[in-house]
Design a protein around this nucleic acid. Structure first.
Lengths: 187, 187
DNA sequence: CGAGGCCTTGACCGCGGTCAATGCCCGTGG
DNA sequence: CCACGGGCATTGACCGCGGTCAAGGCCTCG
């Protein structure tokens, strides 16, 4: 069970007043394994903080289900393209385990920016982290073999294997279950 | 020869005063073909607007030279990771043709944000466009064959073929010159 | 005219994809 | 409590895309 405050402190600490204000726009949510937190086609108006559990962002490429990202305790989840453009998202968010979340309403959040510059900076920081991790991911896809990508993934998320079905991990790594299975067979 | 004003107007039009202020932090620059605008290892403190010519952002993956992006008239060029982190960049910017540019100093630019909210919004918009185009690029890399990527590239930049050496295009598409050559042989 | 850079082409190979068969685990109902 | 069915994972056979290595043509520039 992760605390929002601890995560924030590790990124961009807030004054008690700002933290209070931020808490005011957070709503606790529980969601069951294998249900959708946000369905494909909805417009994303929230950012979620994961207190407990595991989620995946996914979409359909033709017939096949692709896992776009995997998120665990302590992470923030959002569908940024939809959040900033206001367009319905082609991606959905699904619980892989029973989850406890905080829902942060995006409109209420940006209303806080005027009064609390530090909150704006915090989320700017979160956004930049996401941006840079995407740049790294491109490098991974373009230059590393599936085997190396799998090894890196294990290093970053050692407990993912026990919690996430292999088929999700495979499409997250950009390969098929079959290929992933072969890679695992070699240790 | 592209005008900065026209491009801005097509993205987020500014009032005359704001446009004046922005012009005040722009410096015209000329640079010769095959020379570096910014060398690898420098910290990026500028955003460039391309009035004329063609540039590429590149870096070294081991021994091999990789073209990260290609930019033509009307585009903005920056090394965002370096700009936001303040770290020296692993990427360089090189002129593929003789170029005429406007250099926008990043510090002076952000100093304008307080007085001109619209300028901040303009650049926020530019940044978001870059973010979304990166998301699309990931899709391209992950799901389209080299042949399709080449076809899409031709559609987006029809004149690139005449202006950019094939070896740069190849690494930009994430393949070798040899493979690109074979793809081209099939039309 | 020679040298070097750029592009093309051929021979060869390995990674990862598809298709299909099989094994395993688990929930449900007789 | 066991039997069955379905979803997930593994394995084998096969294949094609794109990579490497090396040779050869072509252009430009000194």
């Amino acid at each position: 069970m992760k605390k929002l405050k601890e995560i924030i402190d590790s990124i961009y600490p807030l004054t008690p007043e700002a933290y209070e204000a931020l808490s005011g726009v957070c709503t606790p949510i529980s969601i069951k394994k294998n249900t959708d937190l946000q369905a494909i086609g909805q417009t994303c108006k929230s950012i979620y903080f994961v207190k407990k559990g595991a989620l995946r962002v996914y979409y359909y490429k033709g017939e096949t289900d692709i896992t776009d990202s995997l998120e665990f305790e302590g992470a923030f989840v959002a569908r940024v393209e939809s959040l900033v453009t206001g367009q319905p998202s082609k991606k959905g968010i699904q619980a892989i385990e029973d989850c406890e979340l905080l829902m942060i309403n995006a409109d209420k959040l940006s209303a806080l920016y005027d009064s609390y510059l530090e909150i704006e900076r915090l989320f700017k920081q979160l956004f930049l982290k996401a941006f840079i991790s995407i740049l790294n991911r491109i490098e991974g896809i373009q230059f590393h073999s599936a085997e190396v990508r799998y090894a890196n993934f294990l290093k970053e998320c050692p407990d993912a294997l026990k919690r996430v079905p292999l088929k999700y991990i495979a499409s997250y790594l950009g390969i098929t279950q079959v290929s992933l299975s072969r890679i695992r067979a070699k240790y």
